[in-house]
Structure formats: structure tokens, C-alpha cells
């Protein structure tokens, strides 16, 4: 067996520990950045929803400012964001390289995207439900948690799935500027040194990861659709 893999994937098998470390780094980036993106994006998405004109806590100024900021960060190419946020990253995380150094740009890159996804997920909530909840004496805060979020589990799960997957793409890009991870591993060996087996294995692992996330997301969304 060992022999078989050694012959089939000679370059990879020689760098197996490095490969596992790279995979671990990718998981680490994904998990940390993903957690921040989920929490901050969810909060921003909710604020955008309730403060927009006609929302349950209409606040024109807050909405306009937030709306513009989200647009701004969505339009900056991620590779520029990576270098532009280096000083901020050093300030917050103490470094601008390796996994720690790339969390900040990843969060800035993916959060506005996720916030918009949440906003459009919440926008699907039937206005009648909001009205019914108001008529039953629910406060705006209660409506956020007991109607908007509770009734949007399925669409928010779908939004989360899409964001996790696109975040995976961003981590690969971050790898190119010193963050490590699978993307970096594939570029350094598979691409730069033309080690085809490494490129293939990395791609297969990423496809498997994407499929798993997508399957899990669909499963949860389906469980929550009645």
C-alpha cells in the first residue's frame, strides 16, 4: 500500500508532514475567520434589515452608513485588502503573516459578503409574520430573535454554506502572501515546481471539503424547512 502511494504520488509522499500541516492551517484559518465572519456578518445583516426604510427599527442614518461601508469593502479586490490591512493586522493580532496574520483580512473580505447574504435571507421573511408578531406585543428585539432569525434558519444556513465555501477560496489566495495552508502548498510545489501529483491531491481534497460543506448545509436547511 505504502509502496503504491509512493509510486503514484512521489512528491506528496515525501512532503506528507508538510501537507498535513498545510491542511491543518487551512482548517484553522477557515474556523477562526469563519466564526468571526458568521457572528459579525449576522449582526450586520440584522442591523441592515431592521434599520432600513420600513424596517422595525428604522434608522436612516445608521442604515445609509452601514450600507455604504458594506459596499465599499465588497468592491475592494481581496488581494489588495490583504496588503492594505497589514498594519491593522499587526495592531490587532501582533503579526501580518502566517495564520494569525491573515484572519483580519479574511474577516474584512468575507463579512460584508455574508452580511448581504443574511440581509437578503431575512428579507424573505413574510411581512405578515412581522405584523402578526407586533400585534401580539412583541418588542423589536423579540422580533429579531423569535421571528427574523428563528424563521430564517434555512436561508441563513444556505448563506453560511456559500460563505464558508467562498472563504475557502480566499484562504487559498491568502496563502500566496504568506499565510500558509493548502493553497500555499499547492502553489509552491504543484504550480511553481510543476509537481502534478500535489496539485491533483490538493484539488481533490478541496473538492471533498466543498462537497462536505455543501451537503451539510443542504441537510440542515432541509431539516428546517416545513
Amino acid at each position: 500500500m505504502q509502496e503504491f502511494f509512493n509510486n503514484l504520488l512521489p512528491n506528496l509522499m515525501r512532503r506528507l508532514p508538510e501537507f498535513w500541516k498545510a491542511a491543518g492551517d487551512t482548517v484553522l484559518m477557515e474556523a477562526w475567520a469563519g466564526a468571526f465572519v458568521f457572528i459579525i456578518g449576522l449582526i450586520l445583516g440584522v442591523i441592515l434589515t431592521v434599520t432600513k426604510p420600513g424596517g422595525i427599527m428604522e434608522q436612516k442614518f445608521i442604515y445609509q452608513v452601514l450600507d455604504k461601508i458594506v459596499n465599499l469593502f465588497r468592491s475592494i479586490p481581496f488581494i489588495i485588502l490583504l496588503t492594505a490591512l497589514m498594519p491593522l493586522s499587526r495592531l490587532i493580532m501582533g503579526t501580518a503573516i502566517y495564520v494569525r496574520g491573515v484572519i483580519v483580512p479574511l474577516v474584512f473580505g468575507a463579512t460584508p459578503f455574508f452580511a448581504r447574504q443574511v440581509e437578503s435571507a431575512l428579507a424573505q421573511t413574510d411581512k405578515g409574520l412581522i405584523e402578526a408578531a407586533l400585534s401580539m406585543g412583541s418588542s423589536p428585539l423579540e422580533i429579531i430573535f423569535r421571528v427574523y432569525l428563528r424563521e430564517s434558519v434555512a436561508p441563513i444556513t444556505r448563506a453560511t454554506t456559500i460563505t464558508i465555501i467562498s472563504l475557502l477560496g480566499l484562504t487559498a489566495m491568502a496563502g500566496a502572501v504568506g499565510a500558509g495552508g493548502l493553497g500555499d502548498f499547492a502553489i509552491r510545489y504543484g504550480h511553481d515546481r510543476n509537481m502534478i501529483d500535489i496539485t491533483w491531491v490538493t484539488v481533490i481534497v478541496l473538492v471533498a471539503a466543498v462537497s462536505l460543506v455543501q451537503w451539510l448545509g443542504d441537510f440542515i436547511a432541509r431539516k428546517n424547512t416545513h
Binding site: G128, L129, A132, S135, M136, V147, R150
Partner: peptide, 16 residues
């Protein structure tokens, strides 16, 4: 409002 019930044409029950 808790002492004023309301029902609607589209029922407005929470689907989940």
C-alpha cells in the same frame, strides 16, 4: 397589544 388580538387574511402563522 397583548390584550388586543388580531387575525389576518393570510393567517400569518410562523411556518417553522
Amino acid at each position: 397589544r397583548k390584550k388586543i388580538g388580531m387575525i389576518f387574511q393570510q393567517f400569518n402563522l410562523m411556518p417553522s
